[in-house]
Every structure is written in C-alpha cells, then in structure tokens.
C-alpha cells in the first residue's frame, strides 16, 4: 500500500454541446440533438460512439459513473454520465426511444461492463429493454410483477388519476386532500 498526495483540482465538465461537436466530427449524423446538459445520440450508432468515447486518447471515458432511465412522458430516455479517471473530466450523453409500448435501446455492457446491474435496474423499474444485454432480468422486483413502477403512468388511481403525472394536485388550491386520497 502507498499514499498518494495529489493536488486538489476540479473535474473538467465537457458540456453536451462540446461533446456533440467532437462526436459529429468523427461520426457525421450520429448526434440527433445537443443541449448544454447532454448530447443525444442516435441509438443505432450508440455502440460505436461509446467505444470511441472510451478509447479516444483525448477523451478516455473509461468509467461509466451512472446510467439512468427517465420517463419523459412522450418518450424514454437513458442518460449516461461518463467519467475519465486518467484525464479527470466528465460528460453526459443520452439516447431516446419514442416507442412507449416496446422501448428498446442498445446495451452498453460490451463497452462498459459496469452497466450490467444498472441496465437491469432500468429494465426492472421502467421497462426499457437493452438489446444485447447478457442477462436482462428483473432485479429488485420479482419475475411476474405487473407493470413498471417508475413509469409516470404506472397504476392509474381512482377517478383516472395518474399519481406520477399529477403531482401536487392541491398546489394551486388549498390542501393535500387530493394527494392523500379522500379521508
């Protein structure tokens, strides 16, 4: 064992616009949308883009920090927070699928094995399928659990109320009656 002193420094955040520019130079047409937060990648080209992000000597994003599935109401989004330990920088990319019935995005496990459990989590709670995942099963809930609870339209309440959609229905009005049900 040894001790490394190391000087404190800050992680360089490569914005979505910058990373979109870098990806676009190498893979024309692979970036569908670019925002300061993240670049949205064409799902069909996700694997080649991710492999490039991991192996490029200027980028070296060898560490998948976090993988998040998001229900955007009209689409599903998978957000990848990438880190480079060697170069101390991070960036964010996304993929989107518009198919709400059968959402499928490519699995990044071949690029980052660290996505293994995180993709299973997104599949379990949001029902996003990861094409190419070696062992895609439910992880927290049991096989046979009905529905995907992190979806915004999960469990339609009495009177057709969507608990995930109509957050704080009493916000404009008076009290919390609507949230806690009629008592």
């Amino acid at each position: 064992m040894s001790m490394a002193a190391g000087r404190p420094r800050s992680t360089l955040n490569i914005t979505g616009l910058q990373i979109a520019h870098l990806i676009e130079q190498r893979f024309p047409g692979a970036v569908l949308d670019a925002a300061p937060e993240a670049a949205t990648i064409d799902p069909a080209r996700l694997i080649e883009v991710c492999t490039h992000l991991r192996d490029d000597p200027e980028l070296r994003f060898e560490f998948l920090s976090s993988l998040t599935g998001v229900d955007r109401l009209d689409s599903f989004e998978v957000v990848y927070h990438l880190e480079s330990i060697r170069l101390n920088q991070m960036t964010t990319i996304k993929v989107t699928t518009l198919d709400r019935e059968n959402p499928v995005v490519p699995s990044v496990v071949p690029v980052w094995p660290g996505a293994h459990l995180q993709e299973r989590e997104a599949y379990d709670l949001l029902g996003i399928e990861f094409d190419g995942h070696p062992d895609l099963r439910r992880i927290f809930l049991w096989e046979g659990f009905a529905g995907y609870p992190l979806r915004k339209d999960y469990l339609v309440g009495p009177g057709g109320r969507f608990p995930g959609l109509e957050r704080f229905p009493g916000e404009a009005g008076d009290d919390m009656k609507d949230i806690r049900g009629t008592q």
Partner: peptide, 26 residues
C-alpha cells in the same frame, strides 16, 4: 491501485483547503 478520490479530484465542501493523502493499494 487507482488513486481516484473525489475529495481530491473534484473537491466539494472544504476539501480543497485541507491537506490529506489518498491511500492506494497495490
């Protein structure tokens, strides 16, 4: 063996003003 500690790599709170080492295994 990877000397990666967010307290050093991307300091938050008051860690940038403190002197400490990162323990690294082999």
């Amino acid at each position: 063996g990877v000397a990666w500690d967010i307290r050093k790599a991307d300091p938050y709170a008051a860690y940038d003003k403190l002197d400490f080492d990162i323990a690294v295994g082999t």
